[in-house]
Design a protein around this nucleic acid. Structure first.
Lengths: 207, 207
DNA sequence: AAAACTATTTTTGTATACATTTTTATTAAT
DNA sequence: ATTAATAAAAATGTATACAAAAATAGTTTT
């Protein structure tokens, strides 16, 4: 597996020290590669929001905080609805089949959080693909991949899994019935719901 | 100067080959550093949208295209208005002074495009800073920095400079008069205007 | 005792060398 | 002649070695 992925897993599993700079030499030993690919991974994780700069040099694992979660879901709501409305009329039968496949995968047990996040994104992405707006899609993808950092809460204490899956199913039905407006409103609520649930939970956690 | 910045300048000045993969060895010779910092620069430019992957290896300078420009400005309009509305009530006198300083800088002659883009962003950023939403700000910053790639048109053939500066001035006046709604509408129009102008121009160019 | 400077150590950044992968050119086969 | 297979080359990725920068510890000064 890619070093960058391994680091993500380890961040999610809290197996890397928080609050102190990550040392390239240590990671190099831990993952059994030289410092060059470690440096590559750290810099790309930094630009993806998984790590933050530490003073003049080095990076740190940032604390999860509700403002970030709120921002991510606010942006997702705005941009994904935009993208979805651009795609709506062009969503094909094959897209829906694909989407259902990802949904089924997501119901399996023993998936890593990173993979769950990937599947969740693939589901949404399938609905947006038809818009053929690569730039908008790339940004939305970035937001989804950042949100993965918070997935531990949604699949853990928040027990959001079942409700989320039901909503995904319903969204597909609305698409099939060609009711664009209803689908759009539903998607927005789906995202906003998840955001509010997560944000409120994080707020309570820090009080 | 940083290698990454130099490459950006050279892309804007069309001094690097388009449509063919950029070779690390050549860039290494050109900028007088080893391949390691070149690789770093290429990978970060790729994640910033200045370069795109070329097949299984290597990167290329992408063509400018109107869909990308439209996407960037659509996103900017949505997200910057959101950020601005969060910031509005907290914008300080010092912020406005700073903003006017950047505006003055922007009026000087013989600035590089990259620097103009930086100043334009710094102006907008000054108005959003008070929102204290780092995540949202980081994404918006990314969008602005990508839009720099299109700045050559706006300062060149489109002659947008004067009108844009006037709008910036007017925006500051609206902020000072505490008219949040008017300011918000004006900002949205300011961004959408720039977007439409640029997009239409690019569409014509490719027809 | 606190602050400022200096020396030492640690850590990151860059160059060079080597390994692996990808691309291109060449040869063989249909 | 076109395609497939193979060999050569060129290019990227990674390891190690070294240089520069940052952080730390120790010393001096106020």
């Amino acid at each position: 597996m890619d070093v960058s992925q391994s680091i993500k897993e380890d961040i999610l599993k809290n197996q890397l020290p928080r609050g102190v700079p990550l040392r390239q030499a240590i990671l190099s030993a831990r993952y059994g590669v030289s410092r060059i690919p470690i440096r590559d991974a750290l810099s790309s994780l930094k630009s993806e929001g998984w790590l933050v700069p530490n003073g003049k040099a080095g990076v740190m694992i940032p604390d999860l905080n509700w403002t970030e979660a709120e921002d991510l879901y606010l942006m997702r709501a705005e941009l994904e609805c935009l993208l979805f409305s651009m795609a709506f009329d062009y969503i094909s039968k094959e897209d829906l089949i694909k989407a259902r496949y990802f949904l089924a995968e997501l119901n399996k047990e023993n998936l890593t959080l990173v993979y769950k996040g990937e599947l969740n994104w693939l589901f949404h992405h399938t609905l947006y693909r038809a818009a053929e707006r690569p730039t908008l899609q790339r940004v939305v993808e970035g937001l989804n991949k950042q949100a993965v950092r918070y997935l531990g809460f949604q699949y853990g204490p928040l027990g959001y899994k079942v409700r989320s899956q039901d909503q995904h199913e319903e969204l597909l039905l609305l698409i099939e019935s060609k009711d664009k407006n209803a689908a759009l409103i539903f998607l927005r609520q789906h995202i906003e719901n998840a955001g509010i649930l997560l944000t409120e939970f994080l707020k309570k956690l820090n009080s």
